[in-house]
Nucleic acid binder design. Structure first.
Lengths: 245, 245
DNA sequence: GTCTATAATCCGATAGAC
DNA sequence: GTCTATCGGATTATAGAC
């Protein structure tokens, strides 16, 4: 483990040691199995199968297949017959886990929103008065989070608009929350003269797409051999150069 | 008309006068009517209606309705019945203009790709050896282009993956072309010591989402009262601050 | 709890009248 | 050129056997 040398007096504080993707994944369990277990707990009353290990196992198969098929051609064009045959369950069995196709969508969206909230809203205490490193932590954690749950985030990004008002609002709220966290770090940095920011909200708004591109265009970066760590470094140095004059 | 004062010796060259959105729209005719007229010319052999003004008028109604319905819930979930009733044409009449739903998708994608190519591949001659202002021109022109054709670009962005290999490849090629234009300006600026760029392709790749966010998240910026001109200024100063140390 | 079989509906596409 | 009517097939959702 490295030791952080913060040097507030120099114009360019030293870089806090970056977590690796692996370290992040050891800190937060975001495995499909774990996420589906939470999904089961959250929808116990509507899921007819009550044996926990059976239900969770089937939810894993349902979720994995749904994400795979939807991210190829869209949730609406995925038929429940395809989902049934690809996941190894029957049509009738599927309806033990959700009462409509829309509900399935909302169950997945719900877990994405919950993961964002849980992961991003607890920055380390030590960074409370250190806006530069809090921004770094935010960018890094977001990239690692979306890297770990990539198919989930692509799904949420592409399909949120397609269904009920409830789904759309969930997505909008989640997105605005992330932007608010960025804006907060920017405002703090501005107040401490660490950053030079003209319009805080607008700047936060244009930092956001840098985070989204990582999972939306994941295949592009994979083709070019860019790792999550490299991407974090790239956007971090880009953003910091833009914010510190 | 303003006169451009380029001052290559100073570290921060003076800003070239920015076109307004209106000036751009007077330079390029990107009205739905004009785009549908080109669409008619390009598909004359498969469109059964031969009277030009009739065909173009109906293509306008078809296109406008398709973009409106698709951008709300996705192209695949828009039924041809919805398209017929909303556009005021009958199911049968629609099939005079395309032979399948996929063809309709490709017709729209084709006009988007053509508009990108035509608009972005002819930067003013005066900017040939001026990477800073060529980058500015590129960002500005892209924002104005996508502002003018916003529903078209959202459609291309969201639906390209959903259909045939042909449609996907069209979208990927068009996207990479834009990225190459950015990369070219960056490489040029690096060679002239105007920019400091570590990894040219990666930097170009992360500038791209700044351009896409303008049309993908258009409603967010509308809600906040951000104009196209303001957005251009925001991303231009952000990018330039990041590139010039 | 899961399966098979089927109901009820909606879809893209076409044929033929006008 | 456009409309109405209709075909074959696919879709979501359910009923009932095991």
């Amino acid at each position: 483990m490295h030791v952080t040398h913060t040097n507030q007096s120099s114009r360019r504080p030293t870089v806090a040691p970056m977590r690796t993707l692996k370290a992040f994944q050891e800190e937060f369990d975001l495995s499909t199995k774990f996420l589906c277990a939470r999904m089961f707990d959250r929808h116990r009353e509507t899921i007819r199968t009550q044996k926990r290990h059976v239900a969770v196992g089937n939810l894993v198969r349902i979720t994995k297949t749904t994400l795979a098929l939807s991210n190829r051609t869209g949730f609406h064009s995925m038929s429940l017959r395809d989902l049934a045959s690809e996941s190894g369950l029957s049509m009738g069995a599927l309806y033990n886990y959700f009462d409509s196709k829309d509900t399935l969508l909302l169950m997945i969206l719900g877990e994405v929103a919950a993961a964002v909230k849980e992961t991003l809203s607890s920055p380390p205490q030590a960074l409370e008065h250190d806006p530069l490193n809090r921004l770094r932590w935010l960018l890094e954690t977001h990239v690692y989070l979306t890297e770990t749950m990539q198919p989930w985030f692509v799904f949420a990004y592409m399909e949120a608009k397609a269904f009920s008002r409830e789904g759309r609002e969930l997505a909008v709220r989640s997105e605005l929350a992330t932007e608010a966290l960025i804006a907060f770090a920017l405002a703090d940095g501005e107040a401490q003269s660490v950053f030079v920011v003209d319009d805080i909200d607008l700047t936060a708004a244009i930092i956001k797409p840098l985070l989204q591109d990582w999972y939306v265009k994941r295949s592009k970066y994979r083709r070019r051999g860019v790792s999550a760590e490299q991407y974090v470094r790239a956007i971090t140095s880009f953003v910091e150069a833009a914010l510190t004059r």
